[in-house]
Design a protein around this nucleic acid. Structure first.
Length: 445
RNA sequence: CGGGCUAUGGCGCAGUCUGGUAGCGCGUCCGUCUGGGGGACGGAAGGCCGCAGGUUCAAGUCCUGCUAGCCCGACCA
């Protein structure tokens, strides 16, 4: 993309409405525009990041054997009356009446709806196990929305629901989600630590929250620092293997790691003192096993191999897709702007032309642009008639992980400059070498 | 939902106390000179001063009511 043809309304100064760093940078980098409290338009740059995150979530869900679908944002109140949550949910649920006077609601989650779909079409144990998920906009009418997209009222979320014949099977689904979530966050350049959590209004026995450590996190967390050494890496996992998934769960949850809701001082005291940490964290996902809570109240049953009608065991599993955009920035930025991890960056590489209009510089930039594209990469070429300082400041703000700087001075010696946004280190090299290096970085993701 | 604060051009702000031609910086547009970390000069556009009512010869400014947004807390993914 050429910057002169793009829509990137960057702001030089900090908008007064934003207090935390991710919100400030998302506004300044032209990623979002607030519409009303907790509701945002996603401008092109923000939309790209949102979609990149969504794609990673999809890929990892499908890899784990989960099946994508899409349910509506607007749901009928009657479904929620059946589960009893229409009354329980309170003011956070946005209630709407349609023209016929029917009570509707903008869904804050989809347990009722998915259970309704399940009971209509699934009747036999032979259809299980089954895990369906979707990525859809949700609405929770927060009393006090804040922190930009991290606690909006409208938010984009992946929610998945597993249906299993037994508690044992459902716990495997739980473990499978935990493993797939570890992979998902790691691909986004995040370390998200699974922590034992409180089940809240969804209810249930087993639940873990995934938290990204960041100073601005809304939850206080306590953990054994040994857990931050754990990496999922490129290990091969057979998601059908109960044993393999169980092993990963044990590896990643055996160390002490809890939010303040479930924090236990006595248990924490058993962690060696030098490894005890308290910090702040941003919740970016949660997995639940809740048994037969919804299947019993809503009649989601199957016939087992003994001709008995039994309620299915369920769990639900969420990833906050829109919230992740903010969380990644909280975890990866400096005083100049955002630093995107390669996995989610809106463009793979920036091209800065230091002297727009100079025939050689222009030609070299065009050549770099095509060469990067021919490697399947998406460059952002700053072809504005701006001075160097302005171009650098924009690139630093929007956070592309790699930048190639092209100027007459370097071209005289046949070189351009390749700069890492994260480390700030620059290397001079031939244009071809710079392209090859960037291509290699992305090929190895 | 309690407490606090704010609302003036796209963004950041002054002007309100003490009523009298709506201003500054940044950004935007045009031109010239520039060209390795937000450059210089010259020109230009852009505002029912959040909304409604009131006081007054006169309201951005004073009064009343409302709305929206932000911050702290409680709450929450």
């Amino acid at each position: 993309m050429r910057l002169t043809r793009y829509f990137l309304p960057v702001l030089k100064e900090n908008p007064s409405e934003a207090s935390i760093v991710s919100h400030r940078y998302m506004l300044r980098a032209g990623m979002i525009k607030q519409s009303s409290a907790g509701i945002y338009s996603w401008l092109p740059l923000g939309f790209k990041v949102l979609k990149n995150i969504e794609n990673i979530v999809h890929e990892e869900q499908i890899r784990a054997g989960h099946i994508p679908m899409l349910m509506p944002t607007i749901q009928p109140a009657d479904l929620w009356r059946e589960s009893g949550r229409y009354e329980d949910y309170g003011e956070e649920m946005l209630r709407i009446k349609d023209r016929h006077g029917h009570d509707m609601l903008f869904g804050p989650t989809n347990e009722e709806m998915i259970t309704d779909i399940f009971r209509a079409h699934v009747g036999s144990y032979k259809d299980l196990p089954l895990t369906l998920y979707h990525i859809q906009w949700k609405f929770r009418d927060e009393r006090r929305p804040r922190f930009g997209v991290m606690r909006g009222r409208e938010f984009y979320m992946k929610d998945g629901y597993n249906f299993d014949l037994s508690k044992e099977d459902a716990l495997h689904a739980y473990n499978r989600h935990l493993v797939s979530y570890l992979r998902t966050y790691e691909r986004m350049g995040l370390q998200a630590i699974p922590m034992r959590a409180d089940s809240g209004p969804i209810g249930g026995d087993d639940t873990h929250e995934f938290l990204v450590l960041a100073d601005t996190g809304e939850s206080e967390v306590f953990y054994d620092s040994a857990i931050t050494d754990l990496k999922f890496g490129d290990r091969e996992i057979d998601y059908d293997s109960v044993e393999q998934c169980q092993n990963v769960l044990e590896e990643f949850t055996s160390r002490y790691a809890r939010t303040d809701e479930t924090h236990d001082e006595a248990a924490f005291a058993n962690v060696p003192e030098e490894r005890r940490r308290s910090a702040r964290g941003i919740e970016v996902g949660q997995i639940f096993y809740f048994g037969t809570k919804y299947s019993e109240s809503m009649g989601a049953t199957v016939i087992n191999d003994k001709q008995e009608q039994i309620p299915v065991h369920m769990g639900s599993h969420g990833i906050g897709v829109s919230r992740l955009v903010g969380a990644i920035i909280e975890a990866s930025h400096d005083d100049k702007g955002i630093i995107w991890p390669e996995g989610v960056t809106p463009f793979h590489c920036g091209i800065v032309n230091l002297k727009q209009g100079d025939a050689e510089a222009d030609a070299a930039c065009e050549a770099l642009y095509s060469a990067l594209e021919s490697h399947g990469l998406e460059p952002l070429y700053d072809d504005r008639n701006e001075r160097a300082g302005g171009k650098f400041a924009t690139m630093d703000l929007i956070g592309l992980p790699w930048r190639i700087t092209v100027g007459p001075r370097g071209l005289k010696n046949g070189v351009v400059e390749l700069t890492s946004r994260r480390t700030g280190e620059s290397q001079e090299m031939a244009p071809d070498a710079a392209v090859a290096r960037v291509a290699e970085i992305y090929a190895n993701l």
